[in-house]
Design a protein around this nucleic acid. Structure first.
Lengths: 211, 211
DNA sequence: TAAATAGATACCGACGGTCGGTATCAAAAG
DNA sequence: CTTTTGATACCGACCGTCGGTATCTATTTA
């Protein structure tokens, strides 16, 4: 009757299961059981494979962050540097992340999610969000670099993978040192993105929400 | 009769198949077929799961690089900085890599291999090789940083993932710019690791061996 | 306008085939 | 006789298919 409602339910339940048990360990039957009265045929009517469900889940998770990035990128009142700062700070400032992280989730331990993360950096986050913002920063003088794309890519690799507490677990003090180091690195690269305040909030967020 | 010979054959054939077809798309039956006259029982006698075969394959691939790193780390005649330079240069200087890369391999597109790569950075390469070398460099004055571990980790993340032509495909000019940027970044961080000569050879290696 | 028809869309659930893994057995080694 | 090595038959879980049904929408017809 309400196909998009059914579709949403499938993706929602699948999301929960994938986060809880990982992709490989979640069977189609698991999803069916959670859907209460929906059948295998229904699922395969809307999705042509388990892989396609996975992609829908990734898209949904990604979209929450993207909405946040959209606002920052298109804010006319901010300099390029300010935008970059807010994008980095979105880690703890974006409420969507809380939901994701607080689930003690082992998502990022799942090879397929990690792969998706990397793919998204190169094909979505950098070309449509971070690189344009860096280039704006270069134009308005708030960022000084001859390598905007490279700065964008390496920044995202380091924040999304190295700093990701779900991928590389770190004790609070280790986390703080990582951020201090990255802050210096970026400052030298011409983009003073990470302030002491950001470091503080970053570390606190990890302490409070990551298990 | 020669159990370790059988074991080696299993790992070798599995390696080829994993590289060719990826982990998921390689079945135990595929491995059996390639082994010519060896049975499923034989395989499951030596390995308790497909996953365990995968780990053996990863270990074997890793060991070739490790042997190379061992020599560098334990060379008494080199400064810490010199050792780091050689480790970065191992990308094109280590013959073992050629075998791996020249197979037009889609290995790194395989989520499980990517995961293994990340895992190896944090649990093997950094603690046992790169970090000690950075610390030596700090001690002998050839490297200047207050963050040896962080320098080691971020360096490996960037070289093994961002610069990895099998993960992030780049045109030759893009590759050159990545290396130039990274060279500057590291110089500012107190470790002048990547020379123009290294850049040149790095790019050439990609051109010649990556499809 | 209202009923009839047709076709698309949403859904069902049994079944097929693949595949990872196990149980059992036999031969050889020690 | 015990342990190692390996062969064969088999199990159960799982993904994806397929024939079929119900529901909804749009068009035609009376």
């Amino acid at each position: 009757k309400f196909p998009e409602e059914t579709l949403r339910r499938i993706v929602d339940e699948a999301t929960g299961l994938f986060i809880q048990k990982g992709y490989e360990n979640t069977s189609i039957q698991d999803i069916i059981d959670r859907l209460g009265g929906l059948s295998k045929g229904a699922i395969y009517h809307h999705f042509k494979s388990k892989e396609e469900i996975f992609q829908a889940v990734c898209r949904k998770i990604g979209e929450e962050n993207i909405a946040y990035f959209d606002k920052i990128r298109d804010d006319d009142k901010l300099s390029g540097l300010e935008k970059l700062r807010q994008m980095v700070a979105s880690f703890y400032a974006n409420p969507g992340n809380l939901a994701l992280f607080s689930l003690s989730s082992k998502i990022m331990q799942d090879p397929k999610f990690l792969m998706d993360q990397v793919y998204e950096i190169f094909n979505l986050s950098v070309p449509f969000y971070v690189q344009p913002v860096v280039e704006q920063g270069v134009a308005d003088g708030s960022i000084k670099t001859a390598y905007p794309k490279e700065l964008a890519e390496s920044l995202l690799i380091l924040t999304n993978i190295w700093l990701n507490p779900l991928i590389a677990k770190s004790a609070p003090e280790e986390m703080r040192r990582k951020l201090e180091f990255l802050s210096l690195l970026l400052k030298d690269a011409g983009a003073d993105i990470i302030s002491d305040d950001t470091i503080q909030k970053y570390v606190e967020f990890c302490n409070n929400h990551i298990i």
